[in-house]
Every structure is written in structure tokens, then in C-alpha cells.
């Protein structure tokens, strides 16, 4: 018995296990706090981020050259298609501008300085993606020095991609909306239907079909395939009006009581190079 307890190797293994699991429990618990990570962890992460940039630079350069050649090959068809869209776009832009001006004037009359749709945008590029099946996470190149804040929404050029979970000085971690993490903050979303809007939460993600699952639906209004889904700005983290995706299917949940909506995400979560962090300004 005595021999067992004084076995040096066993004690090292046990202590490592205990320290390891305490650390895991600790970091999962404090993950959603506003004050984490502590400054020491930030310094470590910033150093790692710097080294990562040096390592990833040549590889990204080669990759970008490859995709440039790829896009050159279908330039002709793309050009034809885009030409048709350009005329449309100009008139839309003008009407947009008018509406925006009118909106600003009306807000001024109402003495409404800030509303849920206002946000500041910080553009950054993606340094790396966590090489793990279980953390749907990317690391972006801007941190608290550039004004990134925890829990801010992150969008690509097409739509919502995720939220900031950890902010260091010069880089941040972004948890993608495809996460199935139980502890993740949920996005409050609105479906714009023909007879008004329907509120709910993004509650899950189905990886097999690439569909977001929206639950906690608050009304019985009829939704149909193709309805647009945007963030509702409720809950205090995301600004209002960020495009999430389109409704694909509306059905009852497994118990036949609540409504469950399947949403096709607008953003391609596997092709992220440049993302924008949208920090609410209200």
C-alpha cells in the first residue's frame, strides 16, 4: 500500500489530471464573463497570434493565388450575370439613399438619436480556424485595441456568421453560428412574414443538412419557405437587421407543441476570409 502511494509517476499523473480538469471546469465556467480572459492569458494569446500571422502568411498567399486563378476561369459567365445586376443596383442605391436620408430626418424629429439598427463596424481578416470538430471557432485579427467587444455579432459579406467569445489585445475568437455548444449565447431573430414579424431564438444547428434551427417562436403567424430571417436586436448583444438566412421548413417540434423553423444560413461558414465585427452603439 505504501509503495502504491509513493509511486512518483502515479502521483504526477494524478496531479496532472486534477489540475487539467480543474482548468477545464474553470475555463468553461468563466467563458461568458465579461472580464475574461485575464491579462496574462491575453499576452500569451497576442504572442501566439503574432507567430501565427507569420506562419500563415505564405500559405494564405499561395491559397489566394490559387483561388484567383480559379475565379479567373469563370470570369466571363460571371461578368454576363453581373452586368444585368448593375443597372438594377444603381436605381436601388438611389432609392436606398433617399430612404436613409428620410429615416435620419425622421429620427431627428423624434429625438431618437440611437436605435437598435445602429452599429460600428470593425473589419478584420481571419487568421486561423480551430482545428477541431467540436469548437466551431475562428480567430480574427482585430482585438480590443481596434474596438472589438465581447458578444458582438460577426458578419461576412453575405450575413451573420457568429459572435465574439474572447477578446485579446490584437486578436479575438469568434464562435460560429454552427456551434452546438450548450453554453453558447443564442441569437434573437425575427422572421419577416407577409402578415408581420415572428420572433424567436436560434436554438440549434443541424450539421448534416447545414440548417439553423429556430425555436422559442412567439406567435402563430403563418411562415412560408423563402421568408427572410434577420436578427431582432433583442437580448442586447446583436444589432437589429443583420441578415441571417431564409426559411426552408416550418414544422412542429418533437413533442408536437412548439413550432420549429429550419433556416438556411446566408453566409458560407466554411469560406471566411474577411469578416466584420458589428458592435451595437446604443
Amino acid at each position: 500500500m505504501q509503495r502504491f502511494f509513493f509511486n512518483k509517476r502515479l502521483i504526477i499523473v494524478l496531479i496532472t489530471l486534477i489540475i487539467g480538469f480543474v482548468l477545464v471546469a474553470f475555463s468553461v465556467t468563466v467563458r461568458n464573463d465579461r472580464s475574461t480572459p485575464p491579462i496574462i492569458q491575453q499576452i500569451g494569446n497576442d504572442t501566439a497570434g503574432l507567430v501565427d500571422r507569420v506562419v500563415s502568411y505564405p500559405i494564405s498567399a499561395v491559397g489566394n493565388a490559387g483561388s484567383a486563378v480559379g475565379s479567373l476561369l469563370n470570369t466571363y459567365q460571371e461578368n454576363q450575370k453581373l452586368k444585368k445586376q448593375v443597372d438594377n443596383l444603381a436605381s436601388e442605391k438611389v432609392s436606398n439613399q433617399t430612404i436613409r436620408r428620410e429615416n435620419a430626418a425622421l429620427k431627428k424629429q423624434l429625438k431618437l438619436n440611437k436605435s437598435l439598427t445602429n452599429y460600428t463596424a470593425v473589419t478584420s481578416y481571419v487568421i486561423a480556424r480551430t482545428p477541431s470538430s467540436w469548437q466551431n471557432q475562428i480567430i480574427i485579427s482585430k482585438g480590443s485595441l481596434a474596438g472589438v467587444k465581447k458578444n458582438a455579432s460577426v458578419l461576412s459579406d453575405k450575413g451573420l456568421v457568429g459572435r465574439v467569445t474572447e477578446v485579446n489585445k490584437t486578436n479575438s475568437k469568434v464562435e460560429l453560428i454552427s456551434t452546438t455548444n450548450d453554453n453558447a449565447n443564442r441569437f434573437a431573430t425575427t422572421i419577416i412574414t407577409d402578415d408581420g414579424s415572428v420572433n424567436g431564438l436560434i436554438t440549434n444547428y443541424n450539421a448534416n443538412t447545414n440548417r439553423l434551427i429556430m425555436g422559442q417562436i412567439d406567435s402563430q403567424k403563418t411562415m412560408k419557405k423563402g421568408d427572410k430571417v434577420i436578427t431582432s436586436g433583442m437580448g442586447g448583444n446583436s444589432p437589429q437587421g443583420i441578415y441571417v438566412g431564409t426559411v426552408m421548413k416550418v414544422e412542429k417540434d418533437d413533442y408536437g407543441l412548439a413550432t420549429k423553423v429550419e433556416i438556411k444560413p446566408a453566409a458560407d461558414l466554411t469560406n471566411l476570409n474577411i469578416v466584420t465585427v458589428a458592435e451595437r452603439t446604443d
Binding site: 507567430v51 506562419v55 500559405i59 487568421i127 486561423a128 480551430t130 470538430s133 448534416n208 443538412t209 447545414n210
Partner: peptide, 26 residues
Amino acid sequence: FVALFLDGTLSNMFAGAFFKASLSIE
């Protein structure tokens, strides 16, 4: 450390091939 950061970079570069619906590569 180069190998470590290469893992992250490759995962991001080839995310389309690494993290598919029914297949994910670490």
C-alpha cells in the same frame, strides 16, 4: 510551433473540405 499554427491555417484555408456535413478532419 510551426506545425501547430499550420494546423490552424490549413483548417481555415481548406475549411470547405475539412468541415463538411458528414465529415470533419482534425
